[in-house]
Each structure stands twice: as C-alpha cells, then as structure tokens.
Write a protein that binds this DNA or RNA. Structure first.
Ligand SMILES: [Zn+2]
Ligand SMILES: [Zn+2]
Ligand SMILES: [Zn+2]
Ligand SMILES: [Zn+2]
Lengths: 154, 154
DNA sequence: AGAAACTTTATAGTAGCTTTAAGGTCAAGC
DNA sequence: GCTTGACCTTAAAGCTACTATAAAGTTTCT
C-alpha cells in the first residue's frame, strides 16, 4: 500500500514545504498524526485529502479561519450546506471588494504617473510634487488594498 | 509661528496614530527630530511635509522600501527623475499584477460557487467536493493574491 | 498641589508562513 | 561496525506594517 506517508513524502507530492504542514497542525487545521517508533509523523489517505482541501482553499486565498470554518462543516457530513455557501459568498465578497480598491488605486497611480511625461530634475518632478501635495484620502476611507506579495522586488 | 509640532499635533493634523510616526522614525523614513527639555519630539514644516509624502505613498499602497527609495531620490533634488518614474512604473506593475491574480481568483470562485446552486447536505455539497478535488494550481504558479484586510470577518 | 492629558521607551501581538539552529533517526556503503 | 547523508524533531526568530499594552516621565490646568 502506498497510502502511508512521512511528512516529506506528503510535502513532495502536494508541493508544499514540510514546515507548512507542521504549521497547519499547530494551527489545528490538521489533526495530530500517528508517530513511528522514532517519533516521525505518519499520514494516511484521509490526512492527505484534508491537506489537499486546505491547499485548494489557500490557493483561493481564504484565511485559515475561513478554512477552519469549512473544515468544521465538512466534518459534519449530515448537516445542510447553506453555511458552506455563505462562507464562500463572503469570501467572494472579499475578493470583489479588493478588486474594487485596486481599480481605484490603479486610476490614482495612472493619474500621478501622467504628471511626469517629460522627465526633468527630481526637484521639478510632477510625480514627487504630486505625492507631496495630493489630497489625503481621509474621507473616502479607503482601506489598504494589499498589493505586494511576500517579495515585491524585481 | 504654528510650524512647531509635538508628535500629537502632527498625528492629529495628518490623521495618523502617534505610534506610526515613531515607527517611521524607527524605520528610517523620518529623521530623528529635535527634542524639548523634557525629551519630547519636536517637528517642523519639513518633517510635516515629509510625513505627508510618506502617507500619500502609503495610501497608494507602496511598500516602505519603495517609499524609502522615493525619499532618497527626493533628497537629491538635482538628480534626473527617470528613477522616480521607474519606481512608480514598477509599483503600477505590482497593482496590475495583483488585479490580474484577483480576476483569476474571482473566476475560479464563481465556478466553484456554481457547483452548489441547490443546497443539500454537506456530504454531497458540490463546493466541498470541488475543494477536495480541484486541480492544484502548481503549473500556473499563481502567487498569493492577498484578499483580506487586517480583519476579514463580517 | 494634584489631576488630566500628553509624552517616553520597550515589548508583544497580528497572518501565514519561512528560516535558522541544534539536535535525533534511519538506510546505505565500506 | 561505523560513518555519511538524507531525513526527521522541536523551538525560536524573522518577515510587513503596523497596533496595542505597560510602566513611567512631563506638561498643563485648576
Ligand atoms: Zn475571505
Ligand atoms: Zn519627473
Ligand atoms: Zn509596489
Ligand atoms: Zn452545497
């Protein structure tokens, strides 16, 4: 049978770092697995499927809390699934709101960028001047759009 | 003259927490200011303008590194502003990329949502099944889209 | 003088990992 | 039998950009 994995096997197969698997266990998304004599974690099909589920949710950018919520619903198979729908709808709302914020942001940035079509010295740069005098968006109450991944360079 | 502020004045006027001002100083975005006899920070017009600049950049969701970069350019007024443009263009690229990721995400989520138009039991829910079997996006190499603000509930 | 309102520093917490350190286990090779 | 290397273990720190707390000192008002 190939349905017994050590953490590294699981990690390789699902293309996720081993530390992340341990982290999910620590956070209560994965149950504490059985151990070998030498204290190595041992996983079976059920854990592999559960981790797959979690990774798919993360790929859809759900928070660990949202995922915890879905896992709880999944663990009670007789329950109706209206709540599943509402978690998903809420998350779809999060994405929609974020897209809205980013579109706003893009407009502002393009506007700012247009202030320096003909590069001069930075003292006279329309961009730098724009950034110094731009009206502060304190009424629009725009929350942060969150544009950068874990690394923003390049 | 009203161009001498203590940290609280500056904070109130620019609608930013005092801790954030200290944090920007700690991070080297704001210079270490003069102090009163009693060791209170004292700011003038220049610092106020610098902070305004920083806040505008943050409102456009630049990272502190990007802002540091712009401040450095701003501090050398004789320099050409081509580099200012390239920082801004890079950041516009970050926003565009993020929007692209989020639009992908939105499609996937709508697709998933459509798998449960008629709520049944969670055991048979098309959404939960979809999350368990969905192909893992390992080729598309989609990085995280970052959908949630500092709090994601409600 | 005493209280309110302000300031100071240092420290910890947030999300979701990633990285590092310091060590224990196991299969293969010589 | 013993060493090498790949794997595993835990715990703790680092990442971003703050936010919140604590314990103390200063200034201002009455
Ligand atoms: Zn969400
Ligand atoms: Zn310019
Ligand atoms: Zn950027
Ligand atoms: Zn359903």
């Amino acid at each position: 049978m190939t349905n017994r994995y050590r953490i590294g096997d699981l990690a390789t197969r699902l293309a996720v770092p081993t530390q992340t698997i341990r982290y999910y266990e620590h956070e209560g998304l994965l149950p504490k697995p059985a151990r070998t004599e030498g204290n190595y974690r041992v996983y079976g099909i059920a854990e592999r499927e559960r981790l797959t589920f979690i990774l798919h949710c993360r790929a859809l950018d759900m928070t660990l809390d949202e995922i915890r919520h879905l896992l709880r619903l999944r663990d009670v198979p007789g329950q109706g699934c209206a709540e599943v729908n509402s978690v998903l709808d809420a998350h779809i709302g999060h994405v929609a709101e974020r897209i809205r914020l980013l579109n706003d942001l893009q407009l502002q940035l393009k506007d700012l960028r247009a202030r320096c079509e003909s590069p001069s010295t930075s003292k006279d740069c329309g961009i730098l001047q724009g950034l110094a005098s731009f009206p502060t968006a304190q009424d629009g109450g725009a929350s942060r759009a969150g544009v950068h991944g874990r690394r923003a360079q390049e």
